[in-house]
Nucleic acid binder design. Structure first.
Lengths: 103, 103
DNA sequence: CCGACTGTAATCCCTGACATTACAATGGAA
DNA sequence: TTCCATTGTAATGTCAGGGATTACAGTCGG
């Protein structure tokens, strides 16, 4: 039996972790300056890095512009995490019964 | 000159359109029943199909469970649309100046 | 010692998804 | 034609969450 290729067994990494552990250090830039360059408050950056808030489409777009990265990358990380969280809640989708197309 | 492979020139299709034009018709199912099976209100389905509200992670997860599709597919459509909308706003990212790594 | 950096708390605002309830219009079936 | 299912929509109220501000405390390096 091969483990079904379903959702990640382990919690997907929060996009803020990448910013906190890789990006900012690599740039040698403070959160304060980073926030200014992004055009958002310092609080927004701080809490995002500490994984206290989610990566939004707007923020991903800003990061994309500033860092030259694809916004999708950041959003996909967030999406993976969101889906994982839902999958962890037994009650969430319990009532939904799959429709099988043919028999 | 090749057209830069940037953002879609035309507005990405709203995920609700697929549900409205393809999925529901193929299933021959009413919005009402569809809503019940998803465990959401009829209003939620109606407005989603009419593209009046966005595809959420929660809804994508429900659709995935019910239809046997990947939640990511639905979310990616929404993401594409969200990013497109932002890209349409000249003011949005205007102030952000890209950081060029090396020179 | 001082200032930059950062975590955090407290507010306030705004947006958006979602549930309910209700009503009008439409269209098909009896 | 009559009746009912379906659907669009309006009105409300709730709730969660992102974001801005302001302020304060702790840490660290020059």
């Amino acid at each position: 039996m091969k483990k079904s290729l379903r959702h990640p067994a382990r919690r997907p990494t929060h996009p803020g972790a990448i910013l906190r552990e890789d990006v900012l250090p690599a740039l040698g830039m403070s959160q304060t300056e980073f926030a200014q360059r992004l055009g958002v408050s310092r609080l927004s950056v701080s809490e995002l890095l500490l994984e206290k808030r989610a990566m939004t489409t707007a923020m991903a777009a800003r990061l994309g512009k500033l860092l030259g990265t694809s916004p999708e990358t950041w959003i996909n990380m967030q999406t993976a995490l969101d889906l994982w969280k839902i999958a962890q809640q037994p009650k969430a989708l319990a009532h939904i019964k799959p429709i099988r197309k043919s028999a």
